[in-house]
């Protein structure tokens, strides 16, 4: 029974925290720009407004299913990631499973955007997929480093080993953590890697034809995506968290770092991003792997 409750409660908590983080991001960015900034709960307003808008357009079945697939993919990933001390599903090899599942959400969004038939959406999707290709390689290098270091592919076991040894992985394998953090910048779509949704070049890319409740669902998808990726970082490198509050605080620290970089950076071109990812983080990741082997 508790399990069933948690299947509903965990996503709700994740959405609420994710939206709050998006609000904090907007406020912090505004303060860096020396503006006053919106209230931190602004994303709640936005999402509720979007969900209550009327829809008088459609672009086909996939267009409507896209956001749903995105949310479903992110939820699936969320269930395998331990949050605080609590892991809904935990088993041997779930780290590798999470790597695969993490792609489903973005692919769902790509499918939906592709169906909308707008050329800007098509450009956005192709850019998004190329960006995914670029950051997955250093990401996998970083995660392989963690797996080799702790000799297990279960996220819960990795947290357990960090807690018992008293050293978080970020101090044991700092290079892998750095590589993961650079990849995180691309996963979250923050500058300098916000190439897929560049609003000034391609009209917010994949989202260009989305409006009303579909855009609201995409907002929820974004918050879930943010939550899962940050949670994965905290689990792998910062030793998880004793409860949901310390866990969210750790996530916030990681997220603020991404936001600070986001607020002061211009945007890469697609080829620059690709070259960057396959060069520096990849080299660092390989060096980190050598260290782990030694």
């Amino acid at each position: 029974m508790l399990f069933l409750y948690n299947i509903i409660i965990v996503p709700i908590i994740a959405i609420l925290i994710g939206l709050l983080f998006l609000g904090i991001a907007r406020k912090v960015t505004a303060r860096i720009h020396r503006r006053y900034g919106p209230p931190v709960i602004q994303p709640y307003f936005d999402t509720l407004k979007l969900l209550t808008k009327e829809d008088n357009i459609t672009h086909g079945v996939m267009y409507m299913l896209g956001p749903a697939i995105g949310i479903a993919g992110s939820l699936l990933t969320l269930f395998f990631i331990p949050i605080g001390k609590y892991a809904l599903f935990s088993m041997h090899g779930d780290l590798i499973l999470v790597l695969y599942l993490g792609v489903i959400g973005s692919l769902g969004m790509a499918l939906g955007a592709g169906d909308s038939g707008n050329p800007n959406a098509a450009i956005g999707v192709s850019r998004g997929l190329s960006l995914m290709l670029s950051y997955e390689f250093p990401l996998v290098l970083a995660i392989v480093g963690v797996i080799l270091k702790y000799n297990t592919t279960s996220i819960s076991a990795i947290i357990q080993k960090q807690v018992t040894s008293g050293w978080w992985a970020i101090f044991v394998i700092p290079l892998s953590a750095l590589v993961f953090d650079i990849a995180l910048q691309g996963i979250l779509g923050e500058k300098p890697f916000d190439i897929p949704i560049a609003p000034h070049e391609i009209n917010s890319g994949p989202m260009v034809e989305y409006g009303g409740k579909y855009l609201g669902m995409l907002q929820i998808f974004a918050s879930l995506h943010l939550f899962t990726e940050l949670a994965l970082f905290v689990d792998l490198f910062l030793g998880g968290g004793a409860n949901i509050i310390t866990f969210s605080l750790k996530m916030l620290v990681v997220f603020l770092l991404a936001i600070f970089i986001n607020a002061i950076m211009p945007r890469f071109r697609m080829d620059q991003a690709f070259k960057f990812y396959w060069k520096w983080p990849a080299i660092l990741g390989l060096i980190s792997l050598i260290f782990v082997f030694i």
Partner: peptide, 8 residues
Amino acid sequence: MASPRQAD
């Protein structure tokens, strides 16, 4: 916002 679908 960038596109008319998203704007109010």
